[in-house]
């Protein structure tokens, strides 16, 4: 490689590496703010190095797995409450009044946006379903995971209470 090309290559590489590390450091410093949601553990024990805890009344997103057996529906309206958990940590309760997404199931990951009512309860205004990166036909899923999958059903009475 002749010296002029070498010089240009050095200039360009150092430009890219310099800007790259600047962006990298910025993202690293902002990493807590880039996270879309709190996990139940972070909500209870604090987030990041300084163990920052959200205050009651804060608007936030909480993401975790719906604990099987904790979904309780009101038979008269769309009100529903359920518990969220992440890797074996603390449990956070979510209260919601509205139609849940199709993918909402016990054992499913979800992300809820709402306000913190008390230390471990979130009143959600929006519930989003998170799905994993696995795709398979129903028969395979049944034999592999041993579970049947179905859509949640609403009665007419429940839907009437919707606003």
């Amino acid at each position: 490689m002749n010296p002029r090309r070498k010089k240009r290559l050095t200039i360009i590489l150092s430009l890219v590496i310099g800007l790259g590390s600047a962006v990298g450091l910025t993202l690293f410093a902002l990493s807590q703010n880039i996270d879309l949601f709190y996990t139940p553990t972070e909500l209870v024990q604090g987030k990041g190095k300084d163990k920052r805890l959200p205050e009651v009344g804060d608007r936030l997103r909480i993401g975790g797995m719906v604990v099987p057996g904790t979904v309780s529906r009101d038979s008269q309206s769309l009100r529903v409450s359920f518990d969220l958990v992440d890797a074996g940590g603390p449990i956070v309760t979510v209260e919601y009044d509205g139609i849940l997404p199709d993918l909402f199931r016990e054992g499913q990951g979800i992300v809820a946006m709402g306000t913190l009512k008390d230390a471990t309860t979130v009143v959600a205004s929006e519930v989003l379903a998170k799905h994993d990166e696995e795709y398979m036909p129903a028969e395979v899923a049944e034999s592999l995971k041993g579970m049947k999958h179905f859509k949640p059903e609403y009665t007419d009475e429940q839907l009437k209470g919707q606003h």
Binding site: L27, I34, D35, L36, G63, L128, D132, E133, E134, Y135
Partner: peptide, 20 residues
Amino acid sequence: WWNTLHQGATITKFAKPSIA
């Protein structure tokens, strides 16, 4: 790197693709 609503990689990873 961050927790996101979008799921992880299905085929662009150094492991068996998580799709049947």
